[in-house]
Amino acid sequence: MSSSVVLEKRKKINLKALLIDKLKMLIFILIMGSLASALLTTLDDYTKVLEERNVELFFHGKVLSALNLDDGSRDVAEAFQANITIEQIDGRTLYRDSSGAIAFKFSGGGLWGPISGIVALNPDLTIIEGLAILEQQETPGLGGRIAEDEFLQRFRGVSVDPELVILPARRSAVNPNEVDGITGASMTGDFLSDMINKAIKEVRDQLGVS
């Protein structure tokens, strides 16, 4: 009789100890969690401004390089401020420089992931002034070379009338609307020319140029 009472008592104490133990764990994790969140939120507030500025600078730098205004000697923010006027048409942003050349963003799917970039055209939208790549995940060394200056330079002065053609590597450009492709990356080339042509067509429609 007495032994069972003792057992009962011990059980109760154990239960209490268990509860306290659980409570301790909960409090511990709550304290740690709120400490961590407080720290991160503060840090985020601090770095968010910097991060947004970096993203904007990167984008503006690419716009400048597509319009061939990127001579490297000036501050990107300053050069952008001085040369570019921004126009909004039907949800698309156009970047115009002092000579009237227009740059805008294009994007689409590539071989491995999304490709996006900026193409700059002359005022009557017939000749490419320059091209810049914002984002690509193509095979490094093959399709990935679309982001290299050497390849991007090939587009300068190329006609887009009626549309841009990126040739397979074994043929070289004859017509004014053709560009030499990259060896081993003909699919990336096709994707790229498709998305550029699509964007140009849309802008032509929006501006009423045919």
């Binding site: 961590a36 969140s37 991160l40 939120t41 840090l43 985020d44």
Partner: peptide, 8 residues
């Protein structure tokens, strides 16, 4: 507005 905590 606490996307920063997403990973956590």
């Amino acid at each position: 507005g606490s996307e920063v905590l997403a990973l956590l």
